[in-house]
Simulated scan of single mutants.
Amino acid sequence: MTSSPPGVPRETTEASTETSPRRRSSLQGNSRRGDSIFRGASAGSGILLLVIMAAIAGFLIYRSSIAINKDTTSFLTTFEWDPDNIQKPSFGIAVLVFGTLVSAAIAMVIAVPVAIGIALFISHYAPRRIAQPFAYLVDLLAAVPSIIYGLWGALFLVPHLGGLNSWLDHYLGWTYIFKLSHPGAPARSLFTVGILLAIMVLPIITAVSREVFRQVPRMHEEAALALGATRWEMIRTAVLPFGRPGIISASMLGLGRALGETIAVATVLSASNVLSLHLLDAGGGTFAQNIALKFGEAGSVGKDALMASGLVLFVITLLVNGAARMIVARRKEYSGANS
């Protein structure tokens, strides 16, 4: 026979002992019910996302098929964009594909090394009292609207890139890529757009890379330092291999914004239907810029043609993200997560 605590009646102790299993069972039932609700909500969210993606793809394919059936030229190789020509509608995406991919590539070549350097400085070099404000400052760049970047690029970047373009033409003009056909012309080129996009995607890549570098196991860094490695050797052997998948993911996020940026590109770039390998010459175009500039004045066929170009950009974005996922999955052995 169990004795009750002093001052507590035996009947109260026995009642609480009898009801505790019931309470425990009720809590377990509520927990299972919560798990079921969360599982259903998660599955429903995933299915809803797939449905939305399929609906977008289906809509774009339907409108694109209407336009392509009316196109009298090759949609993939034509430079001209005149879909509302009643007698002979003609439009193609050759210039848009080239401009979109080249400007995004220039942006990534500039932004990725700089972003990784900034992320390493904040996470491993700068004192805390400096790193924290510096990180906030970099993050604030992501909050700047695209139109502000576009106005800054048109009013400041374009007038001040003449000297750089002349220098590139003088020393690298033999590469044909940096040959300046019209010296003194405004720098409204794909090269200028690439620099502007690099500034715009810099905070995204930096923020993600910084958080990945902070997740490196401390024992890995201390082990490298204990073996006599310098700080750079420790970063090269312990930090960068661990953060490689994160760097790739961050770069793909930045590339996604670079591919789809609209207002800033439309403000800076001098649109034309000329495809030139001289990156310093004015002209060219991107998918997003072409849609933004021509949608308001486009007719029925023109809008369907713009939808077709949007479908191509949609496919390019999916391929880029799919390739990034494959690269990350292939390099999981470098992540250090299983160490």
Rank of each mutant, 00 (worst) to 15 (best):
A298N: 08
L277Y: 14
A250D: 02
Q289T: 01
L259G: 00
V315R: 09
R325V: 03
L319D: 06
S270D: 14
A323L: 15
V265M: 01
S251I: 08
M252N: 11
Q289I: 00
A258G: 12
G260Y: 06
G285W: 01
S249F: 06
T317N: 13
A298Q: 08
I263F: 10
T262I: 04
A250V: 07
L279M: 11
V274Q: 12
A264D: 03
M307Y: 13
A282H: 09
I327G: 01
V268W: 04
G256I: 09
L318T: 13
V315Q: 10
A324E: 02
F287V: 01
A324D: 02
L313A: 02
L319P: 12
M307I: 12
L259K: 01
R257N: 03
L259F: 02
S309N: 13
G254Q: 03
G254E: 03
L311G: 05
S272V: 14
H278V: 10
D304E: 14
S272T: 15
L255E: 01
L277T: 15
L318I: 15
L293E: 11
R257K: 11
L293A: 11
A308R: 06
V328G: 00
L313S: 02
S251D: 06
V320H: 07
L311E: 03
S276M: 11
V328T: 03
G256T: 08
V328N: 00
G296Q: 14
G284R: 06
T317Y: 08
L269V: 04
S251L: 06
G256L: 09
V312C: 13
A305F: 06
A258W: 05
A324Y: 02
G254H: 04
A292H: 03
S251G: 12
A323Q: 08
A271F: 15
S270C: 08
L279I: 15
G283M: 13
E297M: 12
L318G: 12
L277C: 05
L311Y: 05
A324S: 12
D281C: 07
L319S: 09
L279E: 05
G296I: 13
V274G: 08
F287S: 01
L279K: 05
A288N: 00
V315F: 11
T267K: 08
G285E: 04
F287K: 01
L253V: 10
L259W: 00
A250Y: 03
G254I: 04
A250C: 09
F314S: 05
F295N: 13
M252Q: 10
L311F: 11
T262G: 02
F314A: 03
L277I: 15
N290G: 04
